[in-house]
Design a protein around this nucleic acid. Sequence first.
RNA 1: CGGGGUGUGGCACAGCUUGGUAGUGCGCUUGGUUCGGGACCAAGAGGCCGCAGGUUCAAGUCCUGUCACUCCGACCA
Length: 477
Amino acid sequence: MAEKKLVEQITSMDEDFAKWYTDIVKKADLIDYSSVKGCMIIRPYGYAIWENIQRLLDARFKATGHENVYMPMFIPESLLNKEKEHVEGFAPEVAWVTHGGSERLTERLCVRPTSETLFCEHYANIIRSYRDLPKLYNQWCSVVRWEKTTRPFLRSREFLWQEGHTMHATAEEAEAETLQMLNVYADFFEKDLGMPVLRGRKTDKEKFAGAKATYTVEALMHDGKALQGGTSHNFGDGFARAFDIQYLDRDNTLKYCHQTSWGVSTRIIGGIIMTHGDDSGLVLPPAVAPIQVVIVPVQQHKEGVLDAAYALRDRLSKVARVKVDDSDNSPGWKFAEYEMKGVPLRVEIGPRDLANNSCVIVRRDNREKLFVSLDDVEKTVTEQMEALTLALYEKASKNREERTYTATTLDELIGIAAEKSGYIRAMWCGELECELALKEKADVTSRCMPFDAEPVGDKCVCCGKPAKTLVYWGKAY
RNA sequence: CGGGGUGUGGCACAGCUUGGUAGUGCGCUUGGUUCGGGACCAAGAGGCCGCAGGUUCAAGUCCUGUCACUCCGACCA
């Protein structure tokens, strides 16, 4: 019932959805607004989610042979300027350091909006031979982009992310790396976060500044807008030529390296909120939930209740991240609070349970009460967490299916864009002109050209000329 | 950068039209009764009304200026 109300709200008014979102972000204790404009303070609970994301992704990066490094946060202007497309793409939103102490710097320093140039300079220094390749580096850091309008997690002037930067001997190897990392992201989204994603390529207009090809995993939010969850770029040898990154190959000739980069940011957290959240607040997939199980003692002043709660915590701690809330708030208060914070499972234990050797487990997503015996409570908790992730995935998939439309004519597309929110599948000729025209006429942008898409026609939905590819169009954050 | 809106205890606001003792709700403190879906009672603490001028016997309220924040139009993980 609560969900229905939400869906009505968000389809009727964007503003309500925005309010719902910012409410959750604050009430679930994820962030505070900072007095530094356009920046956010990530509170311990919000940061713990990010730490879990880091841990899970990092394990996948290590498993695919990547190493973590750290680069400076300042980029000399001359370095940034080396690759023309890149600097033009980022120039409007970089912050500059002009003074050191009271002295004006002879060369301005840019606060990194991304670190391609720094990695390139470093790679130019350390790569000499084919034996040095591939170089598979990743960096966890924050970057700064001077955005005009901001929203917590989705767009802030400083945000946390991870950026992988790799160098390869051949174009084929670089392409394989780009796709491998895209799949790493997709796997993380779908298995750990319960978020179904589209895997595909970005159009030239939407691709990263300086990239040869940009791949994306796109997730669809509650309100039918698309969120780019992760990106993976193949740079070809463009930067390598600009930065003179060459290696001596087996055949004793100098060759340019082929480069990739890929990243995900704290925006993911915004995506989780907007994919799984409901009217009662956040719903966290167990994999990233700081608290996976909260134990709420009922009538905790009564003999034995708190002790039973602590004993249960000690048992469950072996299979989950558990917290007992023994504060003197009323149980109803606690229920609401942990629902707001998205804790996947709530375990209630009170005098009645003590008598029955049982407890009550309530799942956050459907709020169904399970009366379970304490004998195999560990097993039940593990099962329910797995079931919860699966249920989140199913629900989000259903939402995506219901919000995916197909258009074969321009009028049809304009009509759908005006009335519905979601993906519109339509054929495209590949011309920028048509892409701009659709933005102008229907206010949609190309989100993704999925890898495994079935064509829905043979003519461009906009100009009617022979179509090259199927595009998922939509509105983005 | 163009158009609108708002500045009043920690938070959300009312009061301004028609000047006359600074208000409400939430939160906070203390004590008590409660506790299986956001409990209740009582007593408290906390505000140069964004800032600077002006009009007036008197300004949160009227006038002028100024600063800050915020929403909508072009770019972005």
